[in-house]
Design a protein around this nucleic acid. Structure first.
Length: 796
RNA sequence: GCCGGGAUGGCGGAACGGUAGACGCUGCGGACUUAAAAUCCGCUGGGGGAGACCCCGUCUGGGUUCGAAUCCCAGUCCCGGCACCA
């Protein structure tokens, strides 16, 4: 019934929900909110003549099913299939009009074959590589985690401690796309906060790289700074503890202290590091470097407030104009020098990079100076000079790191990679999919010292041959993270059973991009950034035609418990949609989800208020059906009165406009107004009732269809044309004009529409409530807004 | 600390710079009923008044304007994100 196919000449509408991880808990009322919104819109768009694609699928690889398997021995595939069945049943019960022929499941080999295929493309293009990288190792989970999966030094899943350690891992070069990921945010209509979060996550900053030659040794320390205007204020340098030059610069006398500090830093968990942010720690290396702008010999320290992963892993410290350097200098009694006037650097760092004037910044030979300039101009001038003299250059840095892409888990996509003599070799496309092998041991048994993925134990599977020749090879035993499958599922919906290509190009061009994407704000940086990255790679290799996948994005607000707290089992305030449907019906759940408040706002669930929307649905039912079940005799073939028609058309207009703007709550309120009026009538013209049933139907499809049938229609209303409103019928003949005296409301007058101003003034002057406040004084000024308001200004 | 978003009756929420509180919940009163439920009708921001009406009111304090919930400035509190990113 809701199958979509490409139809030339019909406008398309791709309406997508973020597909869920099918957890054992089943659907909750938070899911139902977003799904109802897209469903209402899909139904509305169908009636507006759009060719609507509205699919659903399962992000079914994931940790909970695997952990359940570890505990119980039940294969995750089995658990997953059961959970999917539950989700599907609940969705059907809610009347969600998905095209179920397009259902996809990321754990299906026919699906992950193409996930693996995309990985091969990434590998071919050098965007997937293996590296010894410092990773977030989570002993509790026996696996590594991406930065984004670590919250406050603990795993996002399970809340286990996480430590940093170097490990050989697959990494995707998302940083190669940093600029485009940032730039193309201009192309999409997304919530402001999400755009900001992505921008901050990418974290582009413009500055300069400057080389500080070592004193008494070969080489130089390269630093990145956004404040080259403060170069003359650098009084010391700091290397990250892991920085390779630490070996070189450390003096014999300091070696023991430096080694001890490095060892301690390596052992620290992220959590510990964070807790210690308040107090700066560090050790002098004994080495010195030469400040290239003034030839000064400055000491080199190591400290863990400098991170190896950002910039060059080394900084020039300008304590006068940087908060962290200032604290460090105070803690270790290092000199603080003012090079931008405007504050008092003895009391606090002066970090304003817009205002102030550069001072003490002239080369010893007097040949170059930025003194007197405000920081922005100084930055420009000195950067050009650094470049000209070969001491440095303009540079751009990103906070975004490459994406750690391997996990030591069973329940994920295997990599289409084998290892031959220590080198990764891509399997040819024809060998896909690389199926996940069967096992009954799901637990990662790795330790921090010797991480071992569950797949590594399956010797028969691991041992294989080089695809190019008979040489022995070992399979990659890590699996992909859960994000992999969700990076491109919106493309598979377009062509879900194609075994020749990820998606047929003609279908891709027809449906893409996604017109409306609804899903949780918790994916603002993770899923949405990764998916955009893959999409751009697919764009580069010609698989997709659009630069961005999701044009409009909306995050439904969190549905809170009736105690205004986040729903959680421990609080006991979780509402199960199945229960609510049992007692009130699915149309009531749909309607209430939308009536609670604006889609994007967080709002508390109130079962009491569900009864309010039930009353509305009952009233709508009784407009048409009498107690015996037959069509009510009050439904007549009468011509509706003008006033009745006006309210109908006002309602059609408001509901239509509100739907386009996703204001479901106010659309429902307007339909309640109409219902209340129709209820009062003893004779209800069919010409009023039928359009009302049609505009109600996207919200309450079960009720809508039933009423439509009883009104004598054999066909479903799902593809009936959406009612139109007549603009001339919408305007009222009589209007209420507010009369103010000095801006305060004193009276309201009911007048003929478009009355002349003199007429309105005259009527106002006669009104006792107005005259009383005019107090005999002259009317100094009159403001008149036609059909709305008259403001009389009196007094001096 | 930085970034983003909020704050309106007893509650959820409406409101192009122009009648604050639509719609719903709750509560109160009435009709129907032997009675109750359901349903239907009315009232329901605070204060004063017999009433006509009047005063106050959209987090706080200033400002712009004939007129501010709405725009500007300063602040308080709440929610979300980031957090030693040089």
């Amino acid at each position: 019934m809701f199958h979509a196919s490409e139809e030339a000449g019909k406008p398309k509408f791709y309406c997508l929900d973020m597909f869920p991880y099918p957890s054992g808990e089943g659907l909750h009322v938070g899911h139902a909110e977003g799904y109802t919104a897209t469903d209402i819109l899909s139904r509305y768009k169908r009636m507006r003549g759009f060719n609507v694609l509205h699919p659903m699928g399962w992000d079914a690889f994931g940790l909970p099913a695997e952990q359940y398997a570890v505990r119980t021995g039940v294969h995750p595939a089995k658990t997953t299939a059961e959970n999917i069945a539950t989700f599907r049943r609940q969705m059907k019960r809610l009347g969600l009009s998905y095209d179920w022929e397009r259902e996809v499941d990321t754990t299906d080999p026919k699906y992950y074959r193409w996930t693996q295929w995309i990985f091969l493309k990434l590998f071919e293009r050098g965007l997937a590589y293996v590296a010894e990288v410092p990773v977030n190792w989570c002993p509790g989970l026996g696996t590594v985690l991406a930065d984004e999966e670590v919250i406050d030094g603990k795993s996002e899943v399970g809340d286990f401690p996480v430590v940093r350690r170097p490990m050989r891992q697959w990494v995707l070069k998302i940083t190669a796309y940093a600029d485009r990921l940032l730039e193309d945010l201009k192309l999409v209509d997304w919530p402001h906060s999400t755009l900001e979060m992505q921008k901050n996550w990418i974290g582009r900053s413009v500055g300069a790289e400057v080389d500080f030659p070592l004193a008494g040794a070969k080489g130089a320390i390269r630093v990145f700074t956004t404040r080259p205007d403060t170069l003359f204020g650098a009084t010391y340098m700091v290397l990250a503890p892991e920085h390779p030059l630490v070996e070189v610069v450390t003096s014999e006398g300091q070696r023991a202290a430096v080694e001890a500090y490095r060892a301690a830093a390596a052992r620290k968990s992220d959590l510990q590091r964070q807790e210690e942010v308040k107090e700066k720690t560090g050790v002098f290396t004994g080495g010195h470097a030469i400040n290239p702008v003034n030839g000064e010999r400055i000491p080199i320290w190591i400290a863990d407030y400098v991170l190896m992963g950002y910039g060059t892993g080394a900084i020039m410290a300008v304590p006068g104009h940087d908060g962290r350097d200032w604290e460090f200098a105070r803690a270790f009694d290092l000199p603080i020098r003012e090079v931008v006037a405007g504050g008092d650097v003895e009391k606090e760092p002066f970090v304003d990079n817009q205002n102030g004037a550069v001072v003490n910044s002239t080369t010893p030979d007097g040949g170059f100076s930025i003194d007197g300039l405000p920081p922005p101009a100084a930055i420009e001038k000195i950067t050009a000079w650094l470049e000209a003299t070969g001491k440095g250059r303009k540079a751009i840095n990103y906070k975004l790191r490459d994406w750690l892409f391997s996990r030591q888990r069973y329940w994920g996509e295997p990599f289409p990679i084998v290892w031959v003599e220590g080198a990764p070799v891509a399997l040819p496309e024809e060998m896909l999919p690389v199926r996940l092998p069967e096992t009954d041991r799901f637990k990662p048994e790795g330790t921090g010292e010797n991480p071992e993925a569950p797949l590594a134990r399956l010797a028969d599977w691991v041992q294989t041959t080089d695809p190019r020749n008979p040489k022995p090879a070992r399979r990659e035993t890590n699996t992909m993270p859960q994000w992999a499958g969700s990076c491109w599922y919106y493309l598979r919906f377009l062509d879900p059973s194609n075994d020749q290509a990820l998606v047929d190009p003609a279908k891709e061009r027809y449906w893409m991009p996604v017109d409306l994407y609804i899903g949780g704000a918790e994916h603002a940086v993770l899923h949405l950034l990764y998916a955009r990255f893959w999409h751009k790679v697919l764009h580069d290799i010609g698989v997709v035609s659009t630069p961005e996948p999701f044009m409009k994005l909306v995050h439904p607000g969190t549905v809170l418990g009736d105690d205004n707290q986040k729903m959680s089992k421990s609080r006991g305030n979780v509402v199960n949609p199945d229960d609510v449907i049992d007692s009130y019906g699915s149309d009531a759940v749909r309607l209430y989800e939308m009536f609670m408040g604006p889609l994007e706002a967080s709002k508390p669930w109130s079962t009491k208020s569900v009864e309010g929307v039930i009353r509305f649905l009952d009233r709508a039912w009784r407009l048409v059906v009498e107690e015996s079940g037959g069509v009510s005799p009050s439904v007549t073939a009468d011509r509706p009165a003008t006033e009745q028609l006006r309210l109908l058309h006002q309602t059609i207009k408001k509901v239509t406009e509100d739907l386009e703007a996703l204001r479901f709550n106010t659309a429902i309120a307007q339909m309640m107004v109409l219902t209340n009026e129709l209820t009062k009538l003893e004779r209800r013209p069919r010409a009023l009732i039928e359009p009302f049933v049609l505009i109600l139907s996207p919200f309450a499809p079960h009720l809508g269809e039933e009423l439509w049938r009883r009104l004598g229609h054999a066909e479903s209303l799902a593809y009936e044309p959406w009612p139109r409103w007549d603009p001339s019928l919408v305007v009222e003949e009589r209007v209420t004009v507010a009369v103010q005296v000095n801006g305060k409301l004193r009276a309201t007058l009911s007048l003929q529409r478009d009355a002349a101003q003199q007429q309105v003034e005259a009527a106002a002057m006669e009104d006792e409530r107005v005259r009383r406040h005019l107090d005999g004084g002259p009317v100094r000024k009159v403001i008149y807004v036609p059909n709305k308001l008259l403001n009389l200004v009196v007094g001096r």
